[in-house]
């Protein structure tokens, strides 16, 4: 697949060195193309793109995209794509209610989430997207508890259960896959969602030059599987190695997991393997197994 050479980002932006989300925005909007309105809710500054853009209150992503789409419909400009590029806070947590309602109404919009697994804009506080045991500034490593005690919210399954026409996961480590998914979504009318794992060197505590490596390891260990779900039913795994790498390869280089005990790691390994089995079975059957 040919990745378009044309850049739609206006750079340099104000993201940190080695920001995964800045790359996610750059790649996603390359594929979206220029005929779009891009909406924002509060999040880290990823990449500014050459689109008309507006922002509203944090909790309102779904409503904002809805209003824009319905307004375009009312004035006869249904050619314009409506894209929300939100963080995990705006998707998993404070924005979930309004996004769920927009998904239920099957609004003709794009929701692209750059998932960096915590509230990075305010300095790495835990979110519903933070994985189990990860250290954040609100799930510190203390003498009583060490890191986050709850699992990561399975947002893809939540939205799949809405029966939306297109949902996919992606990773900045696999740009061709990411862009192919947006290209496919562009042919679909209705609610489209792409959740992109976007490593954050500051919050995850690894060197910024290793962002792509972290993203790839996430996929190769099964921590962040790449798949797509059509109409909330048909599932397809897009990356199926013969064997997954052990999760330690992903966990060890990130200092947010440095305090993990062998038991902690075993638990993550077991749960990852179990989820992978389910996905393989789903892929084989061609339908979602929850």
């Amino acid at each position: 697949m040919q990745i378009p050479l044309e850049e739609l980002t206006i750079t340099p932006g104000s993201a940190c060195q080695g920001c995964g989300a800045a790359l996610a925005a750059r790649l996603a909007f390359k594929a979206i193309g220029p005929n779009a309105i891009r909406h924002r809710v509060p999040c880290c500054p990823d990449s500014t793109t050459a689109h008309p853009s507006a922002s509203s209150v944090f909790e309102s992503g779904g409503a904002m995209l809805t209003g824009t789409w319905r307004g375009l419909k009312a004035i006869g400009r249904t050619d314009v794509q409506v894209v929300g590029f939100f963080g995990d806070g705006g998707t998993y947590d404070i924005g979930l209610q309004s996004l769920s309602a927009a998904a239920e109404r099957n609004e003709n919009i794009w929701v692209i989430t750059k998932d960096n697994e915590a509230y990075m804009n305010t300095g790495n506080q835990r979110s519903g997207a933070t994985p189990i045991f990860a250290r954040t500034s609100t799930t510190p490593v203390g003498s009583v508890t060490k890191g986050k005690q709850m699992r990561k919210k399975q947002i893809a399954k939540i939205f799949a259960a809405h029966g939306i026409p297109y949902l996919a996961t992606a990773s900045v480590g696999y740009p061709e896959d990411l862009i192919a998914k947006i290209n496919y979504g562009k042919t679909v009318k209705g609610f489209k969602m792409l959740i992109i794992q976007s490593p954050c060197p500051v919050g995850w505590r690894y060197d910024g030059s290793k962002t792509i490596e972290m993203a790839r390891l996430g996929v190769q260990t099964g921590i962040w599987p790449l798949y797509e779900i059509i109409d909330g039913e048909k599932l397809k795994l897009n990356y199926k190695p013969r064997e997954l790498k052990p999760v330690t390869e992903y966990l060890k280089p990130q200092a947010r997991f440095r305090h993990l005990t062998d038991d902690n790691i075993s638990l993550i390994q077991e749960e990852t393997a179990k989820e992978w089995e389910t996905l393989l079975k789903s892929d084989e059957l061609g339908r979602v197994l929850l």
Binding site: P12, A22, R26, S209
Partner: peptide, 22 residues
């Protein structure tokens, strides 16, 4: 992430004012 590397004549060219040195 910053489009600091341009692709010109099938070769990369770094625009240093955009490079954060990641």
């Amino acid at each position: 992430p910053e489009t600091a590397i341009q692709w010109k004549d099938n070769r990369p060219e770094i625009e240093y004012h955009k490079c954060k040195g990641c």
